[in-house]
């Protein structure tokens, strides 16, 4: 599909990949870190304020820091991807720790008593019970990622944000509006997917509330 002189399909695919992959990578990194913060008060005292500080750094600043920190080319889409990984980890470390905190001690001690090993306890008991809180965190990270990807257009990284910068250069509001609407629709579609996934993974929540 072409519009405004762009292959919109290509921009949508770039937008989705650049927002979705960092959220998944960030989740994989945040799980062990969050578990660590849940287990050790010392780790929590370092990890939680550190994530807070990282989350505070403006996106444009973080995007231009990445090439210096990891040596990527200055125009690489990786700079935007890694920025979003950092935000996702920063947001989810606290989510994971709080989600694990919320698992009742009676449940984990019962699991240990019936013979769960530490890894089985985490993947079989704690993680499934943490899914509702975790899903809420992932949804925030995902929605922000879909909106922040557009900032990459300022440093030449293609996404629906390209319609915003080029629409500005050409003084063409409809093109900018198309970029905004597309970006919001994608954010909502993936938000709904995360919500559905969270519900599918926790059938007992619906059974209990009778909804």
């Amino acid at each position: 599909m072409r519009a405004f002189g762009y292959d919109i399909g290509e921009l949508v695919v770039a937008h989705v990949l650049l927002a979705l992959v960092p959220v998944l990578v960030g989740l994989v990194i945040a799980l062990p870190l969050g578990w660590w913060a849940h287990r050790s008060p010392g780790a929590r005292r370092v990890l939680v304020p550190l994530s807070g500080a990282l989350y505070t750094i403006p996106s444009l600043a973080l995007i231009v820091f990445i090439p210096i920190l990891v040596g990527t080319p200055i125009l690489s889409p990786l700079n935007v991807g890694l920025t979003l990984v950092i935000y996702t980890v920063a947001l989810l470390v606290r989510s994971v720790a709080e989600a694990l905190d919320a698992v009742p001690v009676t449940v984990t001690t019962a699991a240990v008593a019936v013979g769960y090993q530490p890894s089985g306890l985490f993947f079989g008991v704690q993680l499934p019970l943490a899914v509702p809180v975790l899903t809420a965190g992932i949804r925030v990270a995902s929605v922000s990622a879909f909106s922040l990807v557009t900032v990459g257009a300022l440093v030449g990284v293609q996404s629906l944000g390209t319609l915003m910068t080029d629409g500005f250069q050409q003084a063409y509001p409809a093109m900018v509006a198309a970029g905004i609407i597309g970006s919001i629709v994608l954010a909502f579609v993936f938000d709904a997917l995360w919500l559905a996934l969270g519900r599918a993974l926790t059938p007992w929540v619906r059974a209990r509330t009778g909804v």
């Binding site: 929605v143 909106s147 922040l148 915003m164 509001p173 970029g179 919001i184 938000d191």
Partner: peptide, 11 residues
């Protein structure tokens, strides 16, 4: 929250 800041500014 889903509004892309850049787009809003430009528009």
């Amino acid at each position: 929250r889903a509004l892309p800041e850049l787009g809003v500014l430009v528009l």
